[in-house]
Design a protein around this nucleic acid. Structure first.
Lengths: 243, 243
DNA sequence: TTTAGTTTGTGTAAAAAATACACATTTTTG
DNA sequence: CAAAAATGTGTATTTTTTACACAAACTAAA
């Protein structure tokens, strides 16, 4: 912020309203990259575009930001409207603001990344077709949404290793196998089962629920919860330089 | 993006311009948190607010986003205008969009974090007073800029450990002592000199320039450059879960 | 009820990385 | 020439990561 006024002697601006009115404005949207996890695949929730120009293309769930709400509020509103959930993990990722990214004129967007349990919500198919897509199978999308998705997917791959947000994709109680499948799916790697367990147990944020898996065709694994409260308390400044 | 249209049968929108015009719009600004490093202290470049309401308060360097430019372009423009530099490290951090954050009406802002060598630029004091402030000494600022600064400082503390952006605060050629002072200042920690060196040499991105420090009242240290090209090639997907 | 199939749960040895710590060397200053 | 100050290097210890194997639990099919 700042600018205007003249010369070296500062000229104080007395009417901020006038100042703000002198700035050009344009609409902002919030677009949600909603990730889910099903059949050991990372999925993303998309909606069929309602624009003739992008007929048959899929797009992210988004809406313009209302005049009196924060960007993040708009993102939560979108989530609530489409999934019925309002306690979903949500984090801002990046803005996308190419002046010509929308065929109807300048609209910039803020991309949010959201993670939820795919079985725990009711899809609200309000007008257009909503569908969970396997992230790796998506080729084309409306607007610049493929670029946004790609960016958010990379963001997720990095973020999931430093923060336990991935847990939000799983049921409340989950087995270690499910947790490992999740990491392998997101990162496209194979991990050693024993070392993976050891790592998580050593972090000491998993709480044994005393329950075990049901309806599995083999020995059922124990079910755990993640202790987010304990995690939040543990923050450290120095983690070690690692480029 | 999306919305409007009605019922279950999709009604394709033929005129995107009309659609976009139906969205409310407002100005966006880009605010730069410009970090520098001097006398073993992390500094930030601030400008005296030109608004009567925030008389004597300091604010971040910012400007509204022009109608035909990306947010990041606006940030680069601000940097260029104030520091004369255009090859500065710049990265988007977060948006700040409380509807009442600006007394003149709704203005949302995108915060950018920028790192530059404090001795390598000429301050362009165009109208208002520009000054480098020690980050730890800043108490109050105009608008919500203190909140933005705090957020960006935390962001920097985390980011500097996983990415070599901190190097941008140093001269082109720097000693290991300078590099360590930088990390200690940003993170507010004391590090073991021998282990710090070992760590950086092991990463193998430092290039010995063959030169040594000048005008130091003790044995001069060797000067190194950072090989950013080599660094960029080395990216890995799996770095290890570390909460 | 037995057996084959599948997955869970655990332990250990080896390698790699992080930490703690000490001393001789180089240069400047007085 | 001696004192002061910081550089440059090495090693032993601990911690973390990696690689790897086998017994136990449970299901499904014969």
């Amino acid at each position: 912020m700042a600018k205007t006024a003249g010369k070296t002697n500062r000229q104080l601006i007395k009417d901020p309203v006038e100042l703000v009115h002198s700035y050009p404005g344009f609409p902002i949207t919030a677009d949600c990259v909603i990730f889910g996890f099903e059949n050991n695949e990372l999925k993303v929730l998309l909606i069929r575009s309602d624009m003739l120009q992008y007929k048959d293309k899929w797009s992210l769930l988004g809406d313009y930001v209302y005049e009196d709400e924060e960007f993040e509020e708009a993102a939560y509103r979108i989530l609530k409207r489409r999934t019925g959930m309002d306690d979903v993990y949500l984090e801002e990722v990046k803005t996308f603001s190419k002046p010509n990214r929308h065929p109807g004129g300048r609209v910039a967007t803020v991309a949010y990344c959201s993670l939820l349990n795919i079985n725990f919500h009711q899809l609200k198919i309000l007008e257009n077709e909503l569908h969970w897509h396997s992230v790796n199978s998506i080729k084309e999308m409306a607007f610049d949404h493929k670029e946004i998705l790609d960016y958010c997917y990379k963001w997720l791959q990095k973020r999931v290793q430093e923060h336990p947000l991935g847990i939000n994709l799983l049921p409340d109680k989950f087995s270690l196998r499910e947790l490992q499948n999740l990491y392998e799916a997101i990162l496209n790697v194979k991990l050693d089962r024993r070392n993976f367990r050891k790592k998580f147990f050593a972090m000491d944020f998993l709480v044994d629920t005393g329950e075990v898996e049901k309806d599995v065709p083999h020995r059922p694994g124990k079910l755990y919860k993640f202790n987010f409260v304990k995690y939040e308390k543990k923050r450290k400044v120095w983690t070690g330089i690692d480029f």
